[in-house]
Computed example of a mutant assay.
Amino acid sequence: MRARVSNFAVKTKDVSDSLTSEKGDMMMLNTRLLTLALTMAFVLLLPQTASTQGLGAREDNTALQGTNLTYYPQPNFGQCQADCASNGNCKGFTWIQAGTYKAGDAAMCYLVSAVTGKSSARGHFSAVKGSGGTSLGAREDNTALQGTNLTYYQQPNFGQCQADCANNANCQGFTWIQAGTYNAGDAAMCYLLSAVTGRSSARGHFSAIKGGGGGGGGGGTLKGEWDLRCCNDELGWTLSITNQEGATFSGSFSANTGGGVVTNGRLRGNTIEFDRVFGSSRQHWSAQLVNDGGRLRMINGVWTGDYLDRYQGRNNWHAEKK
């Protein structure tokens, strides 16, 4: 009888030890799961580095300036990013980390309909849509753009003028003129440009260029190489515009078929003209500059001067920027 009791006591102790061991294992497992869950939550709340649907790379400690589309509490950077990516009117966003200004402040998401600039700001994380060249650069105060006008109209709001350009594929830049800049009763005006050739200082004018470029080689400038065809397309050159200052430019024709240098180049509105000098010969070339779906072209061109007698009735030309 004592042996049976003793054996029972041993078995009871074994079961108790087993239960204690299993309980310890369960507690350890629960602890690990809780740690994993907290780690995942922390990672999700951290700013993510991947770009999403046209948004550029994340810019740490950077706040966007411009026109707010909306803003709201949002604890997750990735969701703020996704909200901008899926909103056709959102051109960029800034996510502000919780507690950036005060300990109890919630994390905030700001969606921006027009981005005009950036500033350094601790705890701010931003990205701009289409930052490879389709977004507008920083606002340039007291600056007027020169080039080819796409359209112009009365617009009392700078942000709306900016948004109109940002949403127009043919707009390469814009200038907004403050009301009363020239005369007390003048309305504020918005000028959208299809080609930007330069800048000039002008009080009360506020401008921006797509892609942040300017007179030095952006998508709407003359500078670069052009495929030029002449004389019912019988002749062809590469026209290289290598220097540009505002509305004036110079360059050269490729060496084939006489070559030559380009002098006295000037853009007047949407009319482009220049002189071609080769050897002792000189010609004057002119055409209309247009933006065709984002590609610059010179159309309806004519030239006069030396050798016109050989190409009478065929002194036409056109060019397209490469």
Rank of each mutant, 00 (worst) to 15 (best):
P73D: 15
Q155G: 08
G185T: 11
D83Y: 03
G224R: 02
V262C: 04
W285Q: 09
K11D: 08
F253V: 06
T70W: 00
E245V: 09
G214S: 12
L44K: 13
G117D: 14
K23R: 10
Q162K: 05
Q283I: 03
D14S: 10
S135V: 05
I241D: 10
T94D: 07
A202S: 14
M28F: 00
Q53M: 11
I299W: 09
A85S: 11
S280M: 07
G301I: 09
S252D: 06
Y71R: 14
K223H: 04
N315W: 09
G294Q: 06
Y152M: 06
N232R: 12
C109N: 09
G54W: 07
S200E: 07
I272D: 03
N68W: 02
S194F: 02
D105T: 12
L222H: 08
T221F: 00
N316Y: 06
T148V: 15
T20E: 07
N170W: 06
V290N: 12
G180Y: 03
K322C: 00
A98K: 13
Q154N: 10
A50V: 04
T49N: 13
G224N: 06
N291C: 11
K321H: 06
C161A: 11
G218M: 10
T197W: 08
W303E: 11
N142P: 02
G204W: 04
N7I: 01
R229K: 15
L64T: 14
G215K: 00
T148W: 00
A98C: 09
E22Y: 11
A188Q: 03
N168S: 14
I272C: 03
F274K: 07
D292R: 08
H205P: 04
D233K: 03
V196D: 12
A107Y: 13
Q244N: 15
F206V: 09
W303Y: 15
V5Y: 09
L289E: 09
L235R: 13
E273M: 03
D105M: 08
N170S: 13
S135Y: 06
S135H: 15
R122A: 14
L193W: 04
Q79L: 14
S254E: 07
N168R: 05
L55W: 04
W317C: 04
L45A: 14
S18M: 05
D17E: 14
L44Q: 14
V261Y: 00
A98W: 04
L289P: 01
A103E: 15
A166Q: 10
D17T: 09
A202E: 11
A184Q: 08
G236A: 14
T263W: 01
P47E: 13
A144N: 05
S135M: 07
F158D: 04
